[in-house]
Computed example of a mutant assay.
Amino acid sequence: MKESLKEKRIRLVLIGFFIFLVICGFLYRFEIRENQDLVKDKDHSPLALVLKKSEDINDNPVIVLYEYRNSKHIIATYEIERTNRYKFNTLHVIELKEAPEQISPDRTNEGIWVKANRKWTYYSQSLREEERTPKYRKTNSSSDSPYSFDDKTAILTINSDLSIVLEKGEKPTGLFSLSYDGSVWLVVTKRNIKIAAIDPK
Rank of each mutant, 00 (worst) to 15 (best):
Q36S: 04
N60D: 15
F26Y: 07
F149R: 05
Q36E: 15
K87N: 14
D43W: 09
R29C: 05
A76R: 13
A116G: 11
N89D: 09
S124C: 02
R33P: 02
D150F: 01
Y68Q: 01
E130T: 08
C24G: 10
I23G: 02
V62A: 00
T121L: 10
W113Y: 03
Y28S: 11
K115P: 05
F18N: 10
H44V: 07
R29N: 10
Y78M: 00
Y66R: 09
D106V: 05
D151C: 02
V62S: 08
I19V: 14
P134F: 03
K119D: 08
S143N: 04
L91C: 11
F18W: 12
Y122R: 07
L65H: 01
E130I: 07
S45G: 04
V93D: 09
A99W: 00
P134D: 09
E55P: 06
N117R: 14
S54L: 03
L38G: 06
L38W: 08
E110D: 14
N109Q: 13
E67R: 15
R132V: 02
I57Q: 05
N70S: 08
E101F: 07
L127G: 05
Q102T: 03
L38T: 06
V64K: 00
H44G: 01
L91K: 12
S142P: 01
A48P: 03
F20K: 11
I57F: 05
V114A: 06
G25V: 00
F17R: 12
K40F: 02
K40S: 07
S124T: 13
S71H: 10
T108M: 10
E98Y: 11
I19T: 11
F17C: 13
K119H: 10
T133W: 08
G111S: 12
D144W: 00
N84R: 13
S142A: 09
F149V: 01
F18A: 05
E129M: 09
D56I: 01
S104M: 06
E79R: 14
N58H: 11
G25H: 06
S148N: 13
V50M: 00
K52Q: 02
Y122Q: 05
N109G: 06
K53T: 09
K119E: 11
L27W: 06
S142K: 14
I74K: 14
W120R: 10
L91R: 09
T83V: 07
S54F: 00
D144H: 01
I32H: 07
R137E: 01
V39M: 15
D151L: 06
I57H: 05
A116M: 14
E31V: 12
E101G: 13
D151S: 11
P105L: 04
A76L: 04
I19Y: 05
L65W: 00
K42L: 03
S148G: 00
I103D: 04
P146L: 00
I63R: 02
R69W: 07
L21G: 02
A76E: 13
E79V: 08
E130L: 14
L27C: 12
G25W: 05
